[in-house]
Design a protein around this nucleic acid. Structure first.
Lengths: 208, 208
DNA sequence: ATTCTTTTGACACTGAGTCTCACTTGAGGC
DNA sequence: GCCTCAAGTGAGACTCAGTGTCAAAAGAAT
């Protein structure tokens, strides 16, 4: 790996490091791309050469290729829902220390700054189509099959639920929470048969 | 309802009508807010007084209050997953002709212009927290309860699956598709126990 | 007709994102 | 070591979304 590559990697890391620090210190909206570039001692143009948008500096996505690799190593016959659990856990678990540390910072920011939580919720990693593609390959059904899409949607939903827990400050580990959510799904959809009670007035609208 | 109110409503409708028309004709990114304002014969400022962002002109949200009303009228004891199905169907079903027509246009745009599909997927109506709030009221559990959030996440996931079908051009009616997705959920998560097959090379990466 | 309030348009400003062009700097052949 | 080429960088101009202010216009109320 030549000097050029190393320098590039260093610049990218510097930009991300300073960006996250600034976001933490002075908030997301209050931090301009100029601020970040200045802190990392590069020009504004350079920032956009490394990250297509300001939001992207929060994201990472070293995870996707790892997920593919883990998926390819699963024993044939594993039930789909179990496979998802294993893939998620192993893929995140196999991140190196640096990536893992970055992940921690990112989740902490998500808990602290609502704007970042929104970015992660909307943009992070996997969408329905992406998961549907993996499922499609895993069980040999078309990727636009309704059941394949619905399964993928449920997985994405579990992710959102985990992120909501993080956002509510009810957990410190997004990964553990996601794993717990997926575990619950193994026994079906929770509360599906729960009977609804007599309707009561929306507490948000009733007098305090 | 005074002249003032009527005029306001007309302006809002005009802005939305022209915006959707322009988006359809020349694309979302290529249409500036100035274009929309000019077409509707108002100033740029006025546009932003009616819609906080350019994206918002695609959205509607006459639906939320209706959902609340439908929810309040459900018989006590209805299973939660059934309740969701009924609420969604009745709430959308009770839209007036104009709102329904707008919904059609919006879904058509979503199928045609990927950018609009993304906006709908990310911003439209209900997020996990919002649904969790309704569920919380319906069954009397805290809104940040893991199972409540997971259930809400699953519902959102079903929505995404339906939107993915629309996006793939496999259906013309988003509503019917969503209803079908929720029906499937009544019998549990589809494909959950489906065994995965021997891994095969990613077709996207294999030679054509 | 008069006041009062809401809506509106004109304008200025910030910041994200795009583009171009000239420059520097690492890589590799000689 | 030198030269050449390509990759990476910086400066700056430009577009457009979104915010804020302020004064003029138009509907409502008396």
């Amino acid at each position: 790996m030549g000097l050029r590559e190393r320098k590039k990697e260093r610049t990218r890391a510097e930009l991300q490091r300073h960006a996250l620090r600034l976001f933490r210190d002075q908030g997301y909206a209050a931090t301009t791309v100029d601020d970040i570039a200045a802190a990392a001692d590069v020009s504004r143009s350079t920032f956009f050469r490394y990250f297509p948008t300001k939001e992207d500096v929060v994201l990472l996505d070293d995870v996707d290729p790892v997920m593919e690799r883990v998926a390819a190593e699963l024993p044939v016959g594993t039930p789909l829902i179990e496979a998802v659990r294993i893939i998620v856990r192993d893929a995140f678990g196999s991140l190196d220390d640096e990536a893992r540390a970055l992940e921690e910072v990112r989740m902490d920011l998500a808990r602290t700054i609502p704007e970042i939580a929104a970015i992660l919720r909307e943009r992070n990693s996997f969408g329905v189509e992406q998961i549907a593609g993996m499922v499609s390959r895993g069980i040999g059904r078309p990727a636009d099959d309704p059941e394949v899409l619905l399964f993928a949607g449920v997985v994405v939903g579990a992710r959102y639920a985990a992120l909501a827990r993080v956002h509510a400050g009810r957990t410190t580990s997004y990964l553990d929470e996601l794993d717990a959510m997926l575990s619950r799904l193994v026994t079906g959809i929770p509360l599906a048969d729960e009977p609804i009670r007599a309707p009561r007035p929306d507490p948000a609208r009733s007098p305090a």
